[in-house]
Nucleic acid binder design. Structure first.
Length: 334
DNA sequence: ACTCTGGCTCAAGACGCT
DNA sequence: TTAATTGAGCCAGAGT
DNA sequence: AGCGTCC
């Protein structure tokens, strides 16, 4: 069963989580390898379960997002760059407590172009397809699902639904699944449960706070649902809202935000041909066991697992692993 | 009292041996 | 300058 | 399941 995955999100998590004594794993020349470690083993695990993953990489963020992100940047630049200096000083003075240093390091994690390129090279050698999205990966994933190129998007990010992703899988990573069951959301069932159509759902998500705009102060999940059910569109809501109690954000460009959800910049899925091919064992060994110092035995073992799973295909039906939770109300969000 | 929002903090992977 | 998370859980405080 | 280790 084919599944689309937001690669940048995965890389980010690996960079944060795959650490030893607070520091990322590295090659001989000090280059980070945490993202490769995570991608390699997680992908093998997925393939062994009969899943065919297709990774989707982010392109440029939409302009509108840039505006919002600038605010976060300010916060960071002010607080964190100064904190950086302060904490570095602390380290010098106090030979810092490791926890602070760790926390600090995690906040500065970024997924760079290089990380992405390295991951792509690894996926190539593993025989796993990937796509460069022109813009938001989640939007491209949703398009792949809609076009039937993959069965679902595997993500923790509920915004995938806003892009109209029909099927969304949460907690697909199986080590975590030991603790928590895999959840499968069907967008049409969610809409049914909320008694909304897609456009109304988009307006709802904008109110709840998306990456593209501010949200209305005082309006959280409860009131937002109430409002959209009563008025069915942001235009009508704005007309009827008591703006003394609930002020509309200044220069609120909800229309543009809406458009980014309705017509995101994507590659036409029909032009995309996803191919899962044989892993290149020697290539993997060469790439991972050179400077990057991966254990050769483990890498070869991984390559063989990929090979084996590939040739025993049509095995794993995901259904055996989880129940379909077409949860009528996933809005525990923000 | 109750509901709701929003601000805060935290944690975040996978393998293999025991 | 080339990167800018997220979701969950807990709790204070405002509003009704 | 817990824990040290992966690089």
């Amino acid at each position: 069963r084919k599944v689309a995955i937001d690669a940048s999100m995965c890389l980010y998590q690996f960079l944060i989580a795959v650490r030893s004594e607070g520091a990322q794993l590295t090659s001989v020349d000090g280059e980070t390898t945490s993202h490769l470690m995570g991608t390699f083993y997680r992908t093998i695990r997925l393939v062994e379960q009969g899943i065919k993953p297709a990774y989707v990489f982010d392109g440029k963020p939409p302009d509108l997002k840039g505006g919002e992100l600038a605010k976060r940047a300010e916060r960071r630049d002010e607080a964190q760059k100064l904190l950086q200096a302060a904490e570095e000083a602390d380290i010098v003075y106090l030979l810092g407590n490791a926890e602070d240093v760790e926390k600090f390091n995690r906040r500065l994690v970024k997924v760079t172009k290089t990380h992405a390129e390295e991951a792509k090279q690894l996926l190539q050698l593993m025989g796993i397809p990937f796509i460069d999205a022109p813009c938001e990966a989640e939007a491209q994933c949703a398009a792949l699902v809609k076009a039937g190129k993959v069965y679902a998007t595997a993500t923790e990010d509920m915004d995938a639904l806003t892009f109209g992703c029909n099927v969304l899988l949460r907690r697909l990573t199986f080590s975590e699944a030991k603790k928590m069951p895999i959840q499968e959301f069907h967008f049409d069932k969610v809409l049914e449960g909320l008694e909304l159509n897609h456009n109304e759902f988009i307006d709802l998500c904008i109110m709840l706070g998306c990456d593209y705009t501010n949200s209305i102060k005082g309006v959280g999940p409860k009131r937002a649902i109430e409002l959209i059910k009563t008025h069915r569109s942001l235009e009508k809501i704005i007309e009827n809202l008591d703006t003394k109690k609930f002020p509309i954000p200044k220069d609120w460009n909800y229309k543009q935000a809406r458009l980014l959800f309705q017509e995101p910049e994507i590659i036409d899925p029909e032009t995309i041909d996803l191919k899962w091919t044989e892993p290149d064992e020697e290539g993997l060994v060469k790439y991972l066991c050179g400077d990057k110092q991966f254990n050769e035995e483990r890498v070869r073992n991984g390559a063989k697992k990929l090979h084996k799973a590939r040739n025993t295909s049509t095995q794993g039906r995901l259904d055996t692993f989880f129940k379909v939770l077409s949860s009528p109300n996933p809005l525990k969000r923000k």
